[in-house]
Amino acid sequence: MNSSSSLPRFLAVGLLGGSALLGPLSALRPLPAAPAGPGPAPVRPVQPICSPAGPTVVEMAPTRRAGRARAAYALRFPATAFGVAVSGAGHYVYDVEVTAEGLTGGGPSGRVYLAWVATPQLDEWIKLGPVADDQPAKGEVAWNRFIVFVTAEEAADARAWSQEFYFSALSPSSRMHTMVGHGPFASEPCLDPRN
């Protein structure tokens, strides 16, 4: 995890605004068709049901640089003893996975696409790593609110991002809105400096 205060605040606001209208997409993953294993007898087979049992998937908003490429991130709790993964301080702990389609293996001029997750203030961030069509980027995040984004960098070992943003999206928690701030007066900012 890194920390910096050098990045302009407007960048965070712009990123947040750029993806604020996107909603979660359900991951329609078919259930694996596997025979019942040995051991206790299952009940009589029944017709397939079921609701998807996958992560929360959020489509990421592209910038103009992204062209026709697409990206999304998936959130799920890591395996936990408790049904909800939570840190000692009470933050939800999520595995985040960024996937992309239409991105070539390398960025413009041989650069590489990197996925990041950061606080809304961009004062802390985690590098998830390179992302390409066949290469998801994964990591763990435990912040109340965060932003996921993809940039093009000169090298995969970049420690911070450049200004070349390709995709961004908010955490689901960033959609929590107040009745005042998002009514007709829009008087309350989205960004809470405490989070």
Partner: peptide, 17 residues
Amino acid sequence: LGPFRAQSDREPDYELT
């Protein structure tokens, strides 16, 4: 629990919403 774990991959018999 091994024999029970072996049933992890089969489809659910029921769903409760």
